[in-house]
Design a protein around this nucleic acid. Structure first.
Lengths: 203, 203
DNA sequence: CCTCACTCGATAGTGTCACTATCCAGTGTT
DNA sequence: AACACTGGATAGTGACACTATCGAGTGAGG
């Protein structure tokens, strides 16, 4: 498959494919001559992953990290998940009050040792942003978040494929990031359904 | 309060405040002379909202829409939520297969009339992106998303403040957007807790 | 009254990011 | 031999959220 065919097959412009090659997001094709290389199905799949990640707001640097994890996954499944999360969680610097975040962590059934520090800091950062905007999450709603997201996390983990390590890696790494837009979109839909039930304006 | 004090009090640089004034995200201060204006607490709060929204990835145009809704909220609470969602949901153009998204909507207890079309399209878009990356959400996990996000949506709606219209508007509009980073961060934490329970690598 | 830091308002510039366009010499295909 | 196409390099684009600078006017201290 030549580069123009790869482009046609994946929907990604040739110039962009060259860009991804340059950025080492896409492996080189097999060289058939000094100015020719041939690409295969894995390249098409990889392009799909790259575009999905970029669309999801993960920057080129983050995509590179994710791909790094996909190509050299940690032995331990727990560290695999951590690496996947770390690849797409922007590191927050500066002072943060971690007490509220730690409390949420414990309410979800974990303890600080269960969690990479950056994830905890991400929660704290989210809380700080809400605070800065003068927004308070009602306790009943926070309870709901804690309970239902814990359940979602368990369901996701329970469904990790056991068939092959490759499948598991792919599931964990991509599921971590790519499902986020779906979750947010479903939440908005859920809110509108609840609103229409409550106010029966359109139903 | 002069502009430099507003800056000191909010942590936003003077030049940026001027930029927000120019973009009409921040209302003008009360003029005390042709080249002087005084700002108050509402300006500090507004700055907090703007920064929170921008940090959350909502662009300047989106922030303007959100603020428009805050300042002139629709009478109907359902339309208020719709306007808040519309302000921050990028419109997806192009052909999309809505059947899977509609099915999810129904599984959440709604029907197409309960939902603004753009929200449904956002779900379809998220599913299409997953598909393009070659990622399949296991049915049991999708069940989990549907059930738990529906519950979250209801909890959020049930907690809408009844004290004043202002409070309700603020809660709905800001809650729609600003809580998203918190939800995603909690999900990642939940996954790690579940992983550490399952593999007991760190707990 | 004078000075000087500060203000508004306008305009232009910066840095980042994900591409995209152009050029080149070399190659396979007809 | 003609021609489209290739890999590789380099420079340019457009969107975006600021940020820097300037000029004329103004309030507060000495």
């Amino acid at each position: 498959m030549r580069i123009s065919e790869l482009s046609a097959h994946s929907g990604v412009p040739v110039a962009t494919i060259k860009y991804y090659l340059r950025e080492r997001l896409l492996p080189e094709g097999e060289r058939t001559s000094p100015t020719q290389a041939s690409y295969g199905i894995p390249h098409v799949q990889r392009l799909g992953v790259i575009r999905a990640l970029v669309d999801a707001g993960v920057g080129i640097a983050g995509v590179r990290k994710v791909i790094g994890v996909l190509e050299e996954p940690p032995e331990n499944p727990y560290d695999l998940l951590g690496a996947a999360n770390a690849a797409v969680t922007p590191v927050v610097d500066g002072d943060l009050d971690l007490t509220a975040a730690t409390s949420l962590l414990e309410r979800m059934g974990g303890s600080p040792v269960n969690c990479f520090p950056d994830q905890l800091r991400a929660v704290a950062q989210a809380l700080a942003t809400l605070d800065r905007a003068g927004f308070t999450v009602p306790p009943s709603v926070m309870d709901s978040y804690v309970a239902h997201l814990a359940a979602i996390g368990e369901a996701e983990l329970a469904a990790t494929p056991e068939t092959s390590m490759d499948d598991a890696v792919r599931y964990v790494v991509l599921g971590t990031v790519l499902v986020e837009p779906l979750i947010l979109a479903l939440r908005r839909v859920a809110e509108q359904i609840a609103a229409s039930k409550r106010f029966s304006a359109r139903g």
